[in-house]
Write a protein that binds this DNA or RNA. Structure first.
Lengths: 334, 334
DNA sequence: TTGAAAGCGCTAACAA
DNA sequence: TTGTTAGCGCTTTCAA
C-alpha cells in the first residue's frame, strides 16, 4: 500500500541482473546486450520504477537542475526570459529552481547560496543591479553562472543581452529627427549599471552627435513602476518636455496614461519610446513604439550557453549580444 | 584550489566531535551542550561549510523543495499566484521547481512525473484543464498536491480558489441591471471545467434570475489570447452584442481594443467586465471593470496549505474559497 | 550529551 | 557484456 518504494535494487533482483546493469540501461549507457536491456525495461515498466533523482545526484554529483534568480516573476520582461530559459532547460533535461530576489542585494546573495547548497549544476542570474559582493560570490561559486538580460560591468561573467547603448541611441536619434528639442530620459534607478552606464550613455551619444546640449533636468529617475510613471506626467508637462525615452514598458505605460489623462496627445504633443516590447506595449492605446528585444531568445540563448559551460564545451563568445530593432508604433510620429 | 569540498566530516574532525553532533547543531536539534554547539558553529563559519542539500535529502527523505506546475509564467494571472507561492515557500524554507505545462495534458503528466522523481516534498498545480488521467496520477503520487486558482471538478484534491460562479453571476447581474439585453459570455475553451461548469453557470444563473432567455449565439469560445479577443470585435458587432463578461484579462483587453478600433465606445455602446484584475486591467484605456481576486493570496494560501499537509498538521478545509469583489472601473456604466 | 555505525538509492571504477 | 563494491554526504537509530 505504500507508494513509491521500488528501488533500483528491486528491479535488479526482479530482472535477475545486477544494479549496475539496471543503472546502465537507465542511463542509456555503454554496452548492454539488447536482450538484457529489453528484459530490464520490461521489469521497469511492470514495476513502475522511477529512478530517485536525489540518490542519483548524490552519486553522480550532478542534479540536472539549474537555479534561476529573477527579480520578480510578475515582471513581464523577466518572465519572458524565464520562459525561454525553462524551455531550453527542459529540452536538455534540466529543471529550474526559480527564486525571486526583488533585486535586493542581500536577498540575491541569500538565494544564491541557497541554490548552491542545493547543488544546482548551474545558475542563470537576472537582475538590474549586481553588487560587487554578488560578483565575489559568483567567483567563489562552484557552479557556472550566466547572466540573462542583465549587465555586469566588469564583463567577467558570461551573459546574453542586446546592445542597450546603441538601442537607446537609435531611439533618441529618431526623436531628434522628429525635431524634438526637449527629450527626457526616464529610467529606473540610476544606481543600476544598465541605466547609468549603458542606456544613459546612448542617450548622451545621440545628443552629442546632433549637438544638443545635455540637460540634467531632462533626466527622470523612478522605481520603474506604472504608478511612478503616471505621477511623472505633471513634472513632464511643467518642464515642457516633448518626447521621452523610457526604460521599462510598465513605466512607459504609466507615463503615457498620465499624460493622456492630462489632456496631452500622444504622439502629436509628446512622443514616447519604450524599451522592452513586452505584450503590454501593444495592448495600451496608443500602442507603444519600442526597442524590440528577442526576450524569449535572450533566455533561451543564455540557457544554451549555460549547458555548454556545464558540459565543458568550447564557447565562442562569453558576452553574447543579440540583435534588436526599433519598432514604430503609435506613440511616436512617423 | 577546488571549491566547495568541505563536508560534515571535515568539520567534525576539525571541531573534535562526531558527525552526529555536527548534524545536531546543523538541525538545531535536540540536546547539544551550548559550549559544544558554539565550538562547532565556529568551525562551520571558519571553514565556510555549507551542508549538501542533496545528501541531506537522500538521508532524510525530505528535499525541502516543492514542484510548481504552471501553464505559462508569462501569463500574469498565474505569475501572480506563483509569486505568492514562492514567498510563502521561502518563508518556510522551501524552494520551488517551476515547470511550464502550456496546459497541455501530456506535458502536465510528464512534468508531474519528472517533479516526483526529483523527490519534491509537495506540488502546487495550476492549470485550466485537469484531465482524468492527471487526477489518476495525482492519486498515485506520494507527494501531496494542492491546486491553486484551478478547478478539479471531482473535489478530491485540496485547492484554493474564489467562487467563480458567484463572481460571474454578480457581474452578469450588474450588466442586466444596466438594462443590457444582449450580454455575451466570452471565455477560453469550454472544455475547461472552470469555464463550462463554473463561470458559464454563473452567467446562466443570472440570466435565469431575471428571466432572460439563454442564447447560444451569445457564447463565444476563444483561446484566451489578446489576438483572439481583438478579432472577435466584428462578430460581436454583427450580433449586436451590447455587453460582455470576459474570463481573462488579456482576452478582455483584446476585445476592448478591437471594439474601440471599430469605433465602438466603451462603456456607452458596449460594457465589459473582466475576471482577474491583473495589473493590465488598469493600464488599458478605458480601465477594465473586473472581479478582484486576491491573486497573490491564492498562491500564498495554497502554499501554506501545502506546508500543513506536508507536516501532517490538521486541515480545516480542503477546498478553500477566498473572497472576491467586483470593481467598477471605466469599462462599465455606473 | 555524545558517538558509532548503518543506511538513503544511486553511480562508477574495477574486475571478471 | 555483466557483476562487485566502494562510496556520494548526510540523518538517525541505538548505545554509551
Amino acid at each position: 500500500m505504500d507508494k513509491q518504494s521500488v528501488t533500483i535494487y528491486d528491479v535488479a533482483r526482479e530482472s535477475k541482473v545486477s544494479m549496475a546493469t539496471v543503472s546502465r540501461v537507465l542511463n542509456g549507457n555503454s554496452n548492454v546486450r539488447p536482450a538484457t536491456k529489453q528484459k530490464v525495461m520490461d521489469v521497469i515498466n511492470k514495476m513502475e520504477y522511477r529512478p530517485n533523482a536525489v540518490a542519483r545526484g548524490l552519486a553522480s554529483k550532478k542534479t540536472t537542475t539549474v537555479g534561476v534568480i529573477i527579480p520578480d516573476v510578475t515582471d513581464e520582461y523577466f518572465a519572458s526570459l524565464a520562459r525561454g530559459i525553462d524551455d531550453i532547460a527542459s529540452m536538455y533535461k534540466y529543471n529550474i529552481i526559480l527564486a525571486n530576489s526583488d533585486d535586493n542585494p542581500d536577498k540575491q546573495i541569500k538565494v544564491l547560496n541557497n541554490l548552491l547548497s542545493k547543488q544546482v549544476d548551474g545558475i542563470i542570474f537576472m537582475g538590474n543591479e549586481i553588487s560587487d559582493e554578488l560578483i565575489i560570490e559568483f567567483k567563489r561559486s562552484n557552479a557556472p553562472i550566466v547572466l540573462a538580460g542583465s549587465i555586469d560591468d566588469s564583463g567577467s561573467v558570461p551573459s546574453v543581452n542586446i546592445d542597450y547603448t546603441d538601442a537607446v541611441m537609435d531611439e533618441t536619434i529618431q526623436l531628434i529627427k522628429h525635431s524634438n528639442r526637449k527629450i527626457a530620459f526616464i529610467s529606473g534607478s540610476l544606481n543600476q549599471t544598465i541605466n547609468k552606464k549603458y542606456r544613459l550613455k546612448g542617450y548622451r551619444k545621440a545628443l552629442k552627435k546632433y549637438n544638443y546640449k545635455f540637460d540634467d533636468k531632462m533626466i527622470f529617475e523612478t522605481n520603474s513602476s506604472y504608478e511612478d510613471g503616471y505621477k511623472l506626467a505633471n513634472k513632464l508637462i511643467n518642464e515642457k518636455v516633448k518626447a521621452a525615452i523610457v526604460t521599462n514598458d510598465e513605466l512607459a505605460a504609466g507615463v503615457m496614461n498620465g499624460l493622456t489623462d492630462s489632456g496631452i496627445n500622444i504622439p502629436n504633443d509628446f512622443e514616447i519610446f519604450t524599451s522592452n516590447n513586452t505584450k503590454l506595449s501593444k495592448m495600451v492605446r496608443p500602442q507603444l513604439s519600442s526597442i524590440t528585444q528577442p526576450l524569449y531568445d535572450i533566455g533561451a540563448v543564455s540557457m544554451r550557453l549555460l549547458t555548454k559551460i556545464m558540459n565543458n564545451e568550447p564557447i565562442n563568445e562569453k558576452q553574447v549580444l543579440l540583435n534588436y530593432d526599433i519598432l514604430q508604433r503609435d506613440s511616436t510620429k512617423v
